[in-house]
């Protein structure tokens, strides 16, 4: 892996699908003073995985583990898009052309920029392709919006 500097550690959390589970995770983050920039929930039968981007991944990981919550790191990449029509197309089309598969994705928008989070099957190739397409791949330290 040559593009290590661009790897972003997403926190993936196992959660039973029942009331109070998300609140429980959110409380652990609050107590550990961990800020969530974005998250999504993927659901299966009776359980799901909470995927979160946080400012302090190590702190988030150890706080959750200590509470007995099953947690894992997942490598994802973050791409800055123009917050306007066609912004997503450029990135998705470039990956499609190179046959890199997007396993899942979610996005968040702040100020004038939008950030796309991608989990792909070939992360190294994806970074090269997106950079060649002219889009900007964020490093972990660039995730927080400059205005915050």
């Amino acid at each position: 892996m040559k593009n290590n500097a661009y790897l972003i550690k997403q926190i993936s959390i196992f959660s039973e699908n029942k009331p109070g589970k998300l609140a429980h995770v959110a409380k652990v983050f609050q107590d550990a003073n961990v800020n969530m920039m974005s998250f999504s929930i993927a659901e299966a039968e009776g359980f799901g995985v909470i995927r979160a981007l946080v400012d302090k991944p190590e702190m988030a990981f150890s706080s959750l583990s200590k509470k007995g919550i099953h947690v894992a790191y997942t490598d994802v990449i973050a791409v800055r898009m123009k917050n306007q029509p066609g912004g997503l197309y450029e990135v998705a089309a470039a990956l499609a052309e190179a046959a890199v598969n997007i396993e899942y994705s979610y996005a968040f928008a702040g100020c004038h920029q939008a950030t796309l989070i991608l989990r792909v099957d070939d992360i190294d190739a994806a970074i090269d392709i997106i950079q060649k397409s002219g889009a900007y791949v964020l490093k972990p330290e660039e995730l927080l919006c400059p205005c915050e």
Partner: peptide
């Protein structure tokens, strides 16, 4: 068994 993905659990 939990590697962060749904797949292995399903």
């Amino acid at each position: 068994v939990f590697n962060g993905e749904l797949d292995q659990l399903t």
